[in-house]
């Protein structure tokens, strides 16, 4: 599903390139649940952003479902992205001005899905996540765990094949964290490919693979 070949990313600092990612080669198959680990500054988030097409590599090839992402135009890339990728953040990043219902609905609006269909899809998702009673609340009225649930619901609403999560439990207590990870496991069983960045060995254990990054390189995969 995903194939990275010789991906590098650097910034120019004082005329010299400082590498964030260096010569990353990686293959992820559909249905896998991969955890990316590593110390701060090892390039985990950048790798995730490149995988999520939010950021470009300076060098290398990225194939997503047999499409050469690195050579696609912005428009085509955003098309693939909209259809196949969902994102979950550590800080949830819900839109404060929108209700729970509207937050979940928004991605569908950007995919020009008709109102009736949208209603049905959002209603299903809200049912499934057991947040029917919360649908008219605003994000600030929810606990962190609930906010992250909404964030995941929003990421899943467009039925993506790939779910990317950047420290999804980082702001949650351990019980809430466990619930989220159980949910991820469940989703993975249903066929969603998941890549998460995490600091926690325990959370990484939920996945099928762990990729360890150090100073922009893959140290080991298991």
């Amino acid at each position: 599903m995903i194939e990275l070949k010789h991906i590098s990313k650097w910034y120019q600092v004082g005329g010299k390139p400082t590498f964030i990612l260096k010569d990353i080669n990686l293959t992820i198959k559909e249905g896998e649940f991969v955890s990316i680990m590593g110390p701060s500054g090892s390039g985990k988030s950048t790798l995730l952003h490149i995988l999520g097409m939010l950021d470009d590599a300076n060098e290398g090839e990225y194939h997503f479902m047999d499409q050469p992402v690195h050579s696609l135009k912005e428009k085509q890339r955003s098309q693939i992205y909209k259809q196949h990728v969902g994102f979950v953040f550590q800080a949830y990043h819900l839109i404060d001005e929108l209700t729970v219902y509207e937050n979940i609905e928004t991605p569908l609006i950007y995919q020009n899905i008709k109102t009736n269909e949208r209603k049905a899809m959002v209603a299903d998702m809200i049912d499934r996540f057991n947040i029917v009673g919360k649908k008219d609340l605003f994000p600030t009225q929810l606990s962190g765990g609930q906010q992250q649930l909404v964030g995941i619901a929003r990421a899943l609403i467009a039925k993506p094949k790939l779910l990317l999560a950047d420290e999804p439990t980082g702001n949650l207590n351990s019980k809430q964290g466990e619930e989220i990870m159980d949910l991820f496991k469940q989703l993975n069983k249903e066929g969603v490919t998941i890549i998460q960045v995490t600091h926690s060995e325990k959370n990484a254990g939920y996945g099928s693979h762990i990729i360890n990054l150090l100073d922009g390189r893959i140290e080991k995969t298991n």
Binding site: K75, F87, H93, I95, T106, Q111, R154, A158
Partner: peptide
């Protein structure tokens, strides 16, 4: 800024 960032991440195009 945050709202804009989030909207882009969940699939909004610039023209939208």
């Amino acid at each position: 800024a945050k709202e804009i960032g989030v909207r882009k991440v969940i699939g909004s195009q610039r023209k939208q």
